[in-house]
């Protein structure tokens, strides 16, 4: 109990100090004219505060980080709802009825069904909120899974297997001499497949081929890791250039 109270007190002090520091820095920036006083300036202040709050996790977990995290979840969910309302529900479910009427009765029926059926299927998902009738939501999920599988599997096989197989079967030797790129791909595919073939013990020549496959895998993981580092540093660059470019104008 005492430990909890002490933690609560500590958290309160951290939050108060954080906001005091922000008020002082923003006050100086606005006072010296480096930050505009208005909606744009306020937006920059909030973005800067949230950036610092989220990066504070790098030091250690703290209440400021948690606050920013919850704030993000709330804002993102609300934004998602508004965008979905104006981009999907309003035009495709409500306003779409304006285009339904016509002289041809079959066109009218098919247009009406195109609105009614997906809307009902969508609404059925909400029956999960009432345990007694939650089984009804399975109709929607069954439709989604059935349609998804039928729709995705043939397309996936075409794009990821059939179209990918062709460049793995290039000529290794042409009139121009050995095709080193094709040779590397060929060796890489075969040795990696052997590594994932577990029905035979990886000993002797099979063991050697599997080891070559492991090397190919390692090089691939290394390349992926290098790109991951690059991506994360790029995101940090974006935030640093915002903090010291738009908020505190150190960078020209």
């Amino acid at each position: 109990m005492e430990a909890n109270q002490s933690n609560l007190k500590k958290d309160s002090i951290v939050i108060v100090l954080f906001f005091l520091a922000l008020i002082v820095v923003n006050g100086i920036l606005v006072g010296t004219g480096k930050l505009k006083f208005g909606t744009e300036g306020f937006g920059i202040m909030v973005a800067a505060a949230l950036t610092i709050a989220l990066y504070s996790f790098l030091y250690q977990d703290n209440p400021i980080f948690k606050m920013a995290e919850h704030f993000y979840v709330g804002v993102a969910t609300a934004y998602l709802f508004i965008v979905t309302w104006y981009s999907v529900i309003l035009p495709d479910v409500i306003l779409a009825w304006k285009d339904v009427g016509g002289t041809d009765v079959w066109v009218t029926i098919s247009k009406s069904l195109a609105i009614i059926v997906p809307t009902i299927l969508g609404l059925l998902v909400y029956t999960r909120l009432v345990p007694r009738i939650s089984w009804v939501s399975r109709i929607t999920f069954a439709a989604m899974i059935g349609f998804g599988a039928g729709f995705a599997i043939p397309n996936y096989i075409t794009s990821h297997i059939l179209k990918q197989a062709k460049p793995s079967m290039l000529s290794l030797w042409t009139a121009a001499g050995p095709q080193w790129g094709a040779i590397v791909i060929f060796v890489g595919v075969i040795t990696t497949l052997v590594y994932f073939f577990f029905s035979v013990e990886h000993k002797g020549s099979i063991g050697f081929i599997a080891k070559v496959g492991v090397w190919f895998l390692m090089i691939s993981f290394g390349a992926s890791f290098g790109y991951t580092v690059m991506a994360r540093v790029s995101l940090l660059i974006g935030r640093v250039s915002f903090l010291f470019g738009e908020w505190i104008p150190l960078i020209n």
Partner: peptide, 13 residues
Amino acid sequence: AVSAPDYFPFLQS
């Protein structure tokens, strides 16, 4: 950058 290596096979094909 993090997803770039995943897309190289599509360039190849």
